[in-house]
């Protein structure tokens, strides 16, 4: 993503978007449901998770795994660029929106934790994304061409997460415990994935059934336990699609946006 908006006007510190609707997209109150465009929801999922995975650069347990996570992050960034461009200027949307205007799932904004925690997040999300893009690709909506390409990428992300879940779960006593801890900690964020998004045309019941079957199969093969807690209702999380986010998201955004905000229009 270049740091320069196409209309490289010398911007004031907080560039004011041209139209009221663009203004609303950047700052929009969380309560306005009309703004939850499906492209924004899916694009924000990909953008935010891409940034989280990028945080592993320089910190991954081994070099090979660092490259693998960076590859996945770049796949997601590519998807985010296409999706956000359907909504508006990709750079403005990524770098100038306030926290409440982001529509991503709370799952993807969760901090990386240890490697097992990241793998648990990857397992939950990539399984969801594979099924979601699979449905979209077989339909005829505006997302079908994008989904047909992305489904091959996310199938590899899912395979990567499954391979690691199996090895960590069925590895040492410590890796087993850490993997289980990651699965348990993130479980309450998984219900949000199956909330319908207006205009997306997804069969959420089929999505949930497929997801549950797939995750259960991997977790059990890994000698781990599927978390027993609730996915929806009290004691669960998830209003990211409405613009409500968890505390760590603000810090992530501050880091992600600070360069663009400090040096508006900078490019290299």
């Amino acid at each position: 993503m270049t740091a320069t908006p196409a209309s490289a006007t010398p911007a004031p510190a907080t560039p004011v978007p041209a139209t009221p609707s663009a203004e609303a997209t950047l700052r929009g109150p969380a309560s306005d449901p009309a703004q939850v465009s499906p492209a924004l929801a899916l694009g924000d999922d990909a953008l935010v998770l891409s940034h989280r995975l990028g945080e592993w650069a320089g910190h991954a347990p081994v070099l090979e795994e660092e490259v693998a996570l960076a590859n996945i992050a770049l796949d997601l960034l590519g998807q985010a660029r296409v999706l956000l461009s359907l909504v508006g200027d990709e750079d403005e949307l990524a770098y100038l929106r306030e926290e409440r205007a982001f529509r991503n799932l709370q799952l993807v904004e969760q901090p990386n934790g240890d490697f097992a925690h990241t793998i648990a997040r990857q397992l939950y999300f990539s399984t969801y994304q594979t099924l979601l893009y699979g449905q979209l690709a077989s339909g005829s909506g505006q997302f079908a061409p994008l989904a047909a390409k992305a489904v091959k990428e996310v199938a590899y992300h899912q395979d990567h997460a499954e391979q690691w879940t199996l090895r960590l779960g069925d590895g040492t006593a410590e890796s087993h415990e850490r993997m289980q801890r990651g699965l348990d900690a993130l479980w309450r964020f998984t219900g949000e994935m199956f909330q319908p998004v207006d205009g997306l045309g997804i069969d959420c019941q089929a999505l949930r059934a497929g997801w549950t079957a797939s995750v259960t199969s991997v977790v059990e093969r890994a000698t781990l336990a599927v978390p027993g807690g609730p996915q929806t209702g009290a004691w669960t999380a998830g209003a990211g699609r409405q613009g409500l986010h968890t505390e760590p998201f603000g810090r992530m955004l501050a880091e992600m946006q600070h360069l663009h905000l400090s040096h508006p229009g900078a490019s290299w």
Binding site: E64, V67, N71, Q163, R167
Partner: peptide, 19 residues
């Protein structure tokens, strides 16, 4: 490359050498 087993070696090879 380094990998814990053959299956992971294949995946790492995909990421490192066929990007």
């Amino acid at each position: 490359l380094h990998a814990p087993d053959a299956e992971m070696a294949l995946r790492n090879a995909r990421d490192l050498y066929t990007r």
